[in-house]
Every structure is written in structure tokens, then in C-alpha cells.
Design a protein around this nucleic acid. Sequence first.
DNA 1: AATGAATGAGCTTTCATTCAT
DNA 2: CATGAATGAAAGCTCATTCAT
Lengths: 228, 228, 228, 228
Amino acid sequence: MDTTAPEDSEKAPPMAPLSSLREPPTTKRGARTRAALVQAARTVFERDGYLDTRLVDIAKEARCATGSFYTYFTNKEEVLAAVLLEAQEDMLHPGVGRVQGTDDPYAVLEASNRAYLEAYKRNAKLMRLLEQVAQVEPVFREFRSRRADAFIRRNARGIADLQARGVADRELDPMMASRALSGMVSVMAYNAFALGERQEEGTPVDFEELVSTVTRLWANALRFPGHR
Amino acid sequence: MDTTAPEDSEKAPPMAPLSSLREPPTTKRGARTRAALVQAARTVFERDGYLDTRLVDIAKEARCATGSFYTYFTNKEEVLAAVLLEAQEDMLHPGVGRVQGTDDPYAVLEASNRAYLEAYKRNAKLMRLLEQVAQVEPVFREFRSRRADAFIRRNARGIADLQARGVADRELDPMMASRALSGMVSVMAYNAFALGERQEEGTPVDFEELVSTVTRLWANALRFPGHR
Amino acid sequence: MDTTAPEDSEKAPPMAPLSSLREPPTTKRGARTRAALVQAARTVFERDGYLDTRLVDIAKEARCATGSFYTYFTNKEEVLAAVLLEAQEDMLHPGVGRVQGTDDPYAVLEASNRAYLEAYKRNAKLMRLLEQVAQVEPVFREFRSRRADAFIRRNARGIADLQARGVADRELDPMMASRALSGMVSVMAYNAFALGERQEEGTPVDFEELVSTVTRLWANALRFPGHR
Amino acid sequence: MDTTAPEDSEKAPPMAPLSSLREPPTTKRGARTRAALVQAARTVFERDGYLDTRLVDIAKEARCATGSFYTYFTNKEEVLAAVLLEAQEDMLHPGVGRVQGTDDPYAVLEASNRAYLEAYKRNAKLMRLLEQVAQVEPVFREFRSRRADAFIRRNARGIADLQARGVADRELDPMMASRALSGMVSVMAYNAFALGERQEEGTPVDFEELVSTVTRLWANALRFPGHR
DNA sequence: AATGAATGAGCTTTCATTCAT
DNA sequence: CATGAATGAAAGCTCATTCAT
């Protein structure tokens, strides 16, 4: 969706609670090591999952001593925060999918969904990780909530806009509808990309079919007028 | 949805991997202890979450010795299997919500959704637990998948049926659409009941509004004819 | 000192804060292990000092696994509490030194001092340990304080009594005087027994000389009448 | 006490073992850094106690890098030695409290005690620190011993002197008596100033009362003639 | 000299699992 | 079968000390 320009309010940092506590490294070497640790953490987290990741493994992967880990982070939670913080931009503001030169709601909707799904696919492992850790650590449950809310609110604005323009079912509450439809897309994404890749069996989902199905359902659900 | 009678084939296989390995207790006392352990496990799991549950706590809650646990189960995973197996019936076959004496697809759909959501609400803690453990233990990821598939297939059949009767958008692939729409309902349920209850802030969702929103969206999405 | 019968109030447990938190063992084996741990702890504490004692060492000394330690105690502090609790009786109520059939204040005083010093000598290592740990753990600072207070108050009563009988300097405040004189005896004891034994150089103090010196000084300080 | 002039011999040896091992800094900058470290160490030691002090904290307090610490000291022990060495003068030779123009032993004694107690009070935190570290590090146990001995010997000379002049109980061994009475004063000082200030409850000791009590007891103990 | 990051040995603590009674 | 103490591997974390810059 997102037929309106993103407002500034969206840019306000929803990640406040994840900001790191240890003071940032002063020297170049420090910065390098910290970066190595964050990168290593991402690798290991994605490979082993949050719970099975040992701090030692991260340190080892970063080719540094256990103690060095504690120079930059106080615990597993904090590195993960750093990892997510780093990937935040791409996860939160997927290229917005603006379609140049058209007002066709359907085209806009499709572009928006495609952008979301592409971003999800790009960060699939991280999204899987986020789901995992959200089950276990309240801070990240919160993080996930905020991320979801950002999308939901953006889409709710889109829906309200379309209702105002007379092209969407006015009976629907924009927020509720957005919750449901945004949720619908995110489950599909989760199943297709976060879980999907893993499963042996897995019908490797056709990306275009995914985009078109969720778009069509979404359009139908809002009762876009006179379409196919 | 679920406009057809559930077929036997649905009942048979889904839970195979969770069947317990130990042979059932022979004596009455044994059966009593085992039952106490399963009940205690459910209590503790729901209270502390899967990961923070210690076997000792389960044994204590069941008022029996730590060692006794191993008489009936080999590990945490196995008790959880037992817990889920026991709750399976209600979680899998929510009173089907058949609406007697009507063929009105909308009424049937609404009844189906209401039944699903009621069942979810009833088992909210367990569902939350299932989500949690699915992130961590492949066996339960599988379990969750099968449970979801059961609903998805049931609903896909419903959709296909409606398409055949000419009351649903024939462009949609029944399975894909069912995945999306069933997913939509389950996310809403998860957010409302599994998460919702926990969050302080939480807009305590209005149950009826939930039912009507998802039903309306679902009906719209399938392009039920001539309605409002 | 202590020319009066010990009052009940003295028996009230000054050690409340040291009572253990873990529930006591139910079985005989448990009791045996716990006892072994306490004994081992005393040995190791006295040998290595509180700070240099590792829980592993205690467990090893008690010939049990590290984990077993935690069955009975939550940390080093708690075992030490147990050790002290066990030795409490002898450390707190040194045979009171009642001299049968005499009212001679000097004789009574000497007996009292001798009893105190004997008890101190008997528990020298433990007293040394107590001094050490009092520097580090507030709980034990408190414990030491209470122990000291018990003696100080007992002796203050003695002094007041002698003042009433006209055999002690009435200008002195009984409590202040008791603090000073009891302190005097305890430093001497500490230097002679807790420290003394260790020091290579150490003039191994003559016990009788110690008794007679502190007694004479004490008697003089209170201005016992007409003596030598 | 201290009715005689302090002899040179007293000044020489006592602190030998604490002399720093590193050669003094050559440059001005070096001297400044070293001084900053010593000052910082004292602050941190007094605030956190010897054991809880981290070298990093000292460096931080001195606003210099961790590594710099090792330019001047090899370890915690050594900075503490430097700290004590610096404060030594005031702790060892409390303004001697000579009373001009009198021979009255009582007046002299009182002045001596007052001087001692004032010095103790002035350096209370350091004394507390010294007690603490003496329990843990042999070097400082030794240091404390020597400091005590200095006072004890000084006072023993005083006692012997008074005995010679016929104003003190000749039955007493000067050294033993000095040990006991000097100890008496030091315990009182420790309790009043080193501990006292910390305890919430703490009867904030009246300084004058303290001086007069210990003086009176001391005078009595030595059987000063014909006084009140 | 000064800097501050890197190191890693060392200790604590937890808990699933075993096993003697 | 029940019991509950015993086990010990596995992590987490700290901090004195080193060392490259």
C-alpha cells in the first residue's frame, strides 16, 4: 500500500531500547573488532539460532578472545541488538515501492507488496531469527511489535486514503483491516522465506505468484472497484 | 470456512511424530503419576515458558520426585508432546461451527471463523507455547505445520467448493488463497489472544469485532457476490 | 568479669541473619553430605582464608562434586555462616568461668578472663577467619559486632555491679569502660592466638602471663581496692 | 603516653618492606602521572575497599590509560604501598601531643591519647583500609604490625619511665602493659572512627568522652598515685 | 611515555540425567 | 515404582596483565 509520502513521524527511532550500553570504541582497531564481532554474531546467530549460540562461538568466529566480546557487549542480547540495528534500515524501509507516474491503486499496492516481500526475502534469515528471539526475550518481542506496527500504520493510512477516494470498502476500520491484511502478507512471507527455505519438502514458492496472490486478495478484500 | 464435513483422512496422520515412545504405565498408580506429570507440565510450561521450565519444577508441581519423571518421559520434549497430544482434539477440531439449516456462504464462513477463534482463545496459552517451542524444536515446528496444514486444506476445499458454486473468485488458486486467508486469521488470533493478554498496554480486542472483520475481509477477498 | 548469673536475654539468638536458606536435607545421606561440606569448608577456610577459598576446593575436600555444594548452599557466604553457626556455642559462651565458693572480685575477674582467652585460643583459627571476613562481608561484620556486644554488655553489667558494691571506680561509665577493657582483652587474644601462631618471629606468648597481665590491668583500671 | 622524645631509631626501619620497587619517574610528566595515580588509588581504595578496587578504576580516576598504571606499579599491592607510604608520616607520628611546661603524667598521658585519636580520626578511612588489607596481604599485615609496634614500644618506654619515677605499678611488665593498653586505645579508635562512621545506627562517639575514658582507664591501670 | 584494546585463565553457577536406597 | 541426592559438563563473566600502535 502506502500511497502517501512517508511522514517524518515514521522515521522517529522505534529502536530506542536496543541502543547499546557499552561506550563505542575510540580507536580504529576497536571499531574493526567490534564490527567483526557484529558480523560474526550475525553469521552464528543465523546458523545456530539465538539460543544455541554461545558467546565463545561468536568470539571464535570473529577470531578474537572471549574477553574481547565483553569489551563491546555485555551479553548475547546486546550483540543481537547491534546486529538488528545494523540491518534495521533495510528491514524497516523497504524501497517503499513507489510506482512512478501512476495513481492506479492496484499497481501501487502490488509494488508495495513486492517491495515488502523482496525485503523480507533478502533478510529472511534475520527475520527468522527475530521471530525466534521474540519468543524468548521481551525486548525483542517489543522490537518486533514496533516493526510490525510501523507497517501496519503505514498501510492503515493507505487504506484510509483509498476509502476517502471512494475506492475501498468504507465499512472496514482501517487499522483493523490493516492489521489483518498486513498480517496476511507477513505470514506468507514468513512461511515462504523464513521457514520455506529450510524445509526439505518445501514447494519452493514462486515469488511472482506470491506477489500476485496477496495483492489480488488484498485488493479484493478492500473491494477495489471494477477490476478483473 | 470449512463448508464440508471433515474427512477421516484428516484425523489420521498429522501427529504421528509426537506419539510417545515409552509404553504406557501398567499399574493404576503409574497412570496416576503420569497424568499428574502431564498436568503439572502443562501448568508449568504455560507459566514459565518451555525454555525456562526445569524438569525439577514439573516434578515438584506434580508432587513427585525428580527421578520419577524419567519413569515416564525421557526429556522435556517428550512431556510437551504428551501435553499437546492431550490438548490436540480441542485445538484441531474446534466444534466445526456448522450452521444448521443454511447454505449462506457468509453465515457458514462466519461460523467457521468464530469457531476457530474461540478455540484459539480457549487454548491461547498453549498456542503461545506452541509458537515458542516451534522456534526451537524441529519436531514441534513440524507439529505446528501439520496443524496449520489441516486448517489450510480444509479451507482450501471450502474455497474450491465455493468457486465451483460460482460464488468465489475463480482466478484464485484455492490452496494459495487458503494459505493467505487462514494465515490472516491465525495471525490475528495470535496477536489478540496469545500475545494480547500479556501486554499491559494491549487494546483488549473485541471478540465480535475480530470475527466480523476477518470474516468480511475473507468474504471480500473471495468476492462473495452481491453482499453489502 | 561477669559476676552475675547470665541472664536469659543473653541467650537470644544474635545470629538470626546467618540462618541458612536452602531447605535442610531430608535423608540421612543428605545430612551426611551437608555435614561433610561444612566440615570441609571449615578446614579449607582456615587453611586458605575466606577469599582464596574456591567452592571447588570445598567440594573436593568434602569428596563430592561441585554441583553438590549447591544442593545445600547458595554461595560461599552461606557455608561460612553454617560453619560459624556450628561453632557458635563455644565461641559465644565460654564456660563462663564461675569460681565456686568465692566472691572475691579479683578471682572472679581472673576466671572470666581465663575462660575467654581459653575459648579464643581454642577457636583461634576461626576467630582469625571471622576478622578476615568481617572486613569484606557486611553480614559477618554484623555477626562480629553482635558477638562483641554480647561480651561487652555482660562485662558492663559486671562493672556496674562492682560499682554498686563500692569496689569499682564510680566515675567510669560501665559501658564505655567495658568497651575499652573488653576490647583490650580481645586485641590481646587476637594478637596472641589469631596472629601469633602464624608469625615466625612470634614470642609464643605465655598464656598465664597473658591472663595475669590483663586481669591486673583490668582490676587496676577499675580501681579494685586494697590489692597488692 | 610517650613521655620521652621519639628516638631516631624509630624512624628508620619500619616501612622497609613497602618501599617501591620501580625507580622513580625521570620526567616531570612522569612524576605528575605517578602522583595522579597514587591520589586516584587512595580515593578509589577508600571508596570501594581494597578488594573491590579494579586497576582500571584507578586508571580511570587518574584520567589515564590502563597501561600507564604498569609504567609505575606492578600491581595493586604496590600502589597501595605508595598510598600508605605517602600518608605514613601523619599516621605514624601524630603531632606527639607534647604538653609544654608540665610533668604531670596524667596531663601528658591525656595529650598523648588525644594526639593519637585525632590522628586516627583524620586517617580513619585509611586505617580501615589498612585493617582490611592486613587481613589479606602479608606485606601489609607486617606493615600494620610495625606501626603498632612503634606505638607500643614508645608507650612501653613511657611506662618504664613512670615506673622508674615511682608513679606506676611496678608489678607490670612495661611491654606487656603497653601492648594491652595501646591495644585498648586502638580498638576504641577503630570502632569509633573506622567502623563507626559507616554504621547507620552508630552512637556517634563523643570525642572528648573517648579521650577521657581511655586516659582514666590507662592511668588507673598503671595506678597513677593520688588522683581523683 | 601513553594509550586502550586484546588476551585467556579462572571461577561461579545451572540443570539434565543417573543411580543407590 | 518412587525417591531425591549426586554428578559433572557446559556456559557465562571478570579482570590482571600484555602489547601493538
